[in-house]
Nucleic acid binder design. Structure first.
Lengths: 221, 221
DNA sequence: TAAAATTTTTAGACCAACCTAAAAATAAAA
DNA sequence: TTTTATTTTTAGGTTGGTCTAAAAATTTTA
């Protein structure tokens, strides 16, 4: 049996390992978990004891297959619950993270299976993040940051890099949600902000920060 | 903030207090929680500290208004989730208790509110138990044990006294679910077992034990 | 009402999960 | 390559929640 605390550590390690392609440092985990390095060391020992991570003193940490599977299952549950909260209960996409964070710890394979079916086996969550299937595999979907588009290129919004409530709310307010199609009109040299044209011909100016946090699938026009 | 352990104690105390109309004994709580009296004493001190119970050494315990409200909210959440699991995910009524036991601890008033709406504000859960509303009030529904029916009387099944998986499965197997209508044909003096006639004229013999665990709403024929 | 039985509480320990402060190991800089 | 800075671990302590064994209070019985 794994505790909620253990599960949260596994997930954090998984997410850090996803980006940086090397052993995960104690401090990185501490930052992600908003706790101290000492507490992390404590927990790493427990997780190593349970063979969920490969841990060598001062050398950082890596998930074992078992640990990786557990983390993937958690992400699967988290994202399925997010779909439920948005699709079925009508929450906005910036309101569901904390609730899913709790719901993901509910134990029961049958529950996850049935939830998945009930939601029509969604492949992506409300933020565009892929949902692992029951075997822990997920679909790869090529996507590009808006910041990397060339003027004239067009794409539809497929996801966000940042998940903060502030960012998601902002996007919602200006009408940028998943599936919205837009074209890069121009990039301003001075501050790297971008002008984009929406499907309804409306034009928007987005800061570099926004353009670096918005994923698009490029469409051939 | 209340921990899951604290919440479970409050719920246990509430349920015991519901039946016996006096201060709840330490041992009763210990039995309900499957733990030792010593652990209960420990927890009672913590709950008293938080003003969730009125606790006097050796004198048993009673919920305060705050504690009662918290327990009621938990029961509300538990039963709403049970409805969800049965109605939406297709679980059988004997499979949902443990899952609801986990789900009831998820925090978020908005979630409960939306879940309630999504399920069309059900007044009763899949076992016929009443669901408290957002203010903690619940509907009283007169019901009688099958064991107390007179021969010739007729009623429809509205609930169960016992919630064990074994009992619920047995009922399901013989076709006795909520809403089923039946008539008491005869009570056997020897062992207090009962013969009942179903709507489809099929007859069943039920043990005294079953008849003392099945609630009916008497119908005037 | 005194002795016996039961119930409840205390005392003392344990584990998981956290903390701070100090020590040790590793990495970076001079 | 030695010093400095950073990272990580250890040591020791706290809290919540549990336990067993023993002591204290209450209730029951004789």
């Amino acid at each position: 049996m794994t505790s909620q605390a253990e599960e949260n550590y596994l997930k954090a390690i998984f997410k850090i390992a996803e980006k940086e392609n090397k052993a995960v440092q104690t401090n990185a985990v501490a930052a992600a978990m908003q706790t101290t390095a000492a507490s992390v060391t404590d927990m790493l020992k427990r997780l190593a004891e349970k063979n969920l991570i490969a841990y060598e003193k001062y050398r950082g940490v890596q998930l074992t297959d078992a640990g990786c599977r557990l983390a993937t299952d958690l992400i699967r549950k988290h994202r399925l619950w997010e779909v439920f909260l948005v699709e079925k209960l009508g929450f906005a996409w910036d309101e569901v993270h904390d609730l899913a964070e709790q719901l993901e710890h509910v134990q029961g394979d049958e529950l996850v299976q049935r939830l998945d079916t009930y939601l029509n086996n969604p492949r992506f969550d409300p933020h565009g993040d892929p949902i692992p299937d029951a075997e822990g595999r997920w679909e790869f979907r090529p996507q590009t940051l808006l910041a990397n588009l060339e003027p004239g290129e067009q794409g539809i919004i497929t996801g966000v890099q940042e998940h903060s409530s502030a960012f998601l709310q902002y996007l919602g307010q200006v009408g940028l949600t998943l599936g919205v199609s837009l074209q890069l009109v121009e990039r301003i040299d001075y501050d790297q902000s971008v002008r984009v044209r929406l499907h309804d011909a409306r034009e928007l100016t987005l800061s570099e920060k926004v353009s670096k946090n918005l994923f698009l699938k490029i469409e051939n026009t």
